[in-house]
Design a binder for these strands. Structure first.
Lengths: 191, 191
DNA sequence: AGGTTGATATACCGACCTGTTTACTTTTGG
DNA sequence: CCAAAAGTAAACAGGTCGGTATATCAACCT
């Protein structure tokens, strides 16, 4: 159930558009950021945006997809750098801290996009499901490799902890939520 | 740090407005629901809405506040019905299932509102912080009453689990996420 | 009885937002 | 070298949305 969207031709201007749109969308929300603002901020005309991306919706989808790709790369890097499968599962929580330090603390872009576009047809729905399933499968593979029983359930538990940490890192000034989530994950894994 | 908003006079029409607005806001998102739609759906004119609530922002704040009150009542009922403090902490996860069965599965209204209104001044920010702090404090009191050490950290861990369960109950077709979160909470509590 | 209050009905305004169009200039690759 | 592709510039179209104005009607409470 992978999600496919027609990839626009990524010219230099298109890259600049995507970068600034990503910044604006994530930090200010999608519906509050107009195409005109993106054009002005990227030093580009609206025509170029519509020539490259066709519609704001397509630009939003491209933003979510690109961000997802970058995030998965960060997670994978932390997993591969870990000493063993158990440590790798915990390292995912470290990747969250690194990701947040670099990207900001406005929660999960997928979840936020879902909140803005409630309809069942918007790409953000499928993209978010994809992303969460991907992380759950990563957790499951690691838990299995660690030789722990009940890997399917345990993977979902880790996923829930992770998503909770993502949310609570934004709301309510609980900066140590991620560290505590990691500690809780370790106890759940018996480490 | 409680949040105060001028309470509008809750006439019968105002109640109908608030009810239908709550339904629409939660299930379709806030910015996609126009004031005209709310008026039509509630069988009320726009003037009545503005006479009662003054602005859409005020209506949104009233929606979030009312929903928060109802939710806290459900949680408290489950806590009070539990046999002991440990069971009460776990019962919060049962209250989530009841709440979701009655209200739907579009995640936390506060978090969703925060996603739509990114600005630091919007009431949803303070309201969400309030709500999460309230639940954390409930958890902390219960963990303390159960005589468990490290109650402050444990409370945050339970809160993270809870918020993760709220999110994952919506995204990614993981219906058992809440039950698994409860199981994980039990293990973290040593129950 | 009558004035205050709540509500209806309807038209309207200004701002904003997505998307298009036309005409012109720059870049770039075969 | 030159044509195709990419981008600039600026105006405009069509629609939506939050909010206001005016005039009218019905209920309620001293």
């Amino acid at each position: 159930m992978t999600v496919e969207i027609a990839e626009p031709r990524m010219t230099r201007a298109a890259l600049r558009i995507l970068e600034t749109a990503s910044e604006l969308f994530y930090h200010r929300g999608i519906h509050t950021v107009g195409v005109d603002l993106i054009a002005a901020e990227a030093g580009v005309t609206k025509k170029t945006i519509y020539d490259r991306f066709g519609s704001k919706d397509n630009l939003v989808a491209a933003y979510l997809r690109a961000r997802d790709r970058r995030w998965r790369a960060v997670v994978d890097r932390h997993i591969e750098a870990a000493a063993g499968p158990g440590e790798a599962a915990l390292a995912v929580f470290d990747s969250l801290e690194e990701w947040r330090a670099a990207e900001g603390t406005r929660g999960c872009a997928m979840i936020n996009a879902r909140a803005e576009y409630a309809g069942p047809d918007h790409p953000s729905r499928a993209l978010a499901a994809d992303q969460k399933h991907w992380l759950r499968d990563r957790f499951r593979a690691l838990v299995e490799a660690a030789g722990l029983p009940g890997s399917a359930d345990l993977a979902v538990e880790l996923l829930v902890l992770h998503e909770g940490a993502v949310v609570m890192g934004d709301v309510g000034e609980l900066e140590d939520a991620t560290a505590l989530a990691k500690r809780a994950a370790a106890r759940l894994l018996g480490l």
